[in-house]
């Protein structure tokens, strides 16, 4: 059920809590088709949770998530699985299946979901691997790959079924500058070349800002800033300022909530 509107993914009034913590509080988000949209914010603000909510792995407490016109959480299991075939997801550590080699990992969704003969699958796998520059590594096992390479293989796997969108969960975390550069380029390139919509969750400002068309800043369960990279820099928002400039203290406090300092020290003895 395709909707040729501008917006591919949107949430309305999305609220989600885990235990006593409110992770999202009445959030409205719009993600445009064909764009690279980034969600940033301090660690622990539940950015990964957002991706899981969009993919239907988690249920919101209230509110709606719409993907390509369909309400994700109203779908029956079979329909949800159909929708997921059109979504690709790149996990933080790649999440490659450790008991098969690179080739088989990329071929996995093809073998499971299509009846294509092995010759065709071979062509597709090689094409996807070539797109991420790892065609020569196809016989390696996941344990033999570096972190960056594993993520690229996972990316090849994510685009195996030619999805309409890809979600990236902290793709730049812990990467050396070269791998980072490679990945940044790949994400933008694939997005434009394949007509994808990319959703990136990250806290690496420089890299993300370089390729994102649209940025959402999340903190305390709310959207505290929204716009392109330049718009955010020029906005007067304290949040945006602290985040983009990497200031240690600001709207996101340095100190974890605690008693008054002098009081705590002087009354030492009480645990």
């Amino acid at each position: 059920m395709s909707n040729s509107s501008d917006i591919l993914v949107s949430t309305r009034g999305l609220s989600f809590s885990r235990g006593s913590r409110q992770i999202f509080d009445d959030i409205d988000i719009d993600i445009k088709r064909g764009s690279v949209t980034a969600f940033m914010g301090p660690s622990g603000t539940g950015k990964t949770t957002l991706l899981r909510l969009i993919g239907g792995q988690l249920r919101p407490d209230s509110g709606k998530v719409l993907v390509d016109g369909e309400e994700v959480h109203a779908l029956k299991r079979a329909q949800l699985y159909q929708l997921r075939k059109r979504m690709g997801m790149l996990f933080q550590n790649g999440a490659l299946l450790t008991d098969m080699n690179v080739y088989d990992n990329v071929a996995f969704p093809l073998r499971e979901h299509t009846d294509l003969p092995e010759r065709l699958i071979r062509d597709l796998v090689l094409m996807k691997l070539h797109a991420v520059g790892l065609r020569g590594a196809r016989k390696l096992m996941p344990s033999e790959l570096s972190g960056g390479m594993a993520r690229r293989v996972a990316l090849a796997r994510a685009i195996a079924l030619d999805p309409m969108m890809i979600m990236y969960d902290e793709p730049f975390t812990g990467q050396d500058p070269i791998s980072m550069g490679v990945l940044v380029n790949l994400i933008r390139l694939l997005n434009d070349a394949l007509g994808l919509t990319s959703i990136i969750v990250s806290h690496d400002i420089a890299e993300t800002a370089a390729i994102a068309d649209d940025i959402y800043l999340l903190s305390g369960g709310k959207v505290v800033a929204h716009g392109s990279a330049d718009e955010l820099k020029q906005s007067g928002s304290e949040w945006a300022k602290q985040f983009i400039e990497g200031l240690p203290d600001g709207p996101v406090p340095f100190h974890y909530p605690a008693e008054d300092y002098a009081h705590d020290l002087l009354n030492g003895g009480a645990a």
Partner: peptide, 21 residues
């Protein structure tokens, strides 16, 4: 371990039921 390294989650997102597979 497959659960801890998110392989089961990845399968779910690839529309493959980890219980069956």
């Amino acid at each position: 371990l497959m659960k801890a390294t998110e392989q089961l989650s990845a399968m779910e997102m690839m529309a493959i039921d980890p219980i069956r597979r």
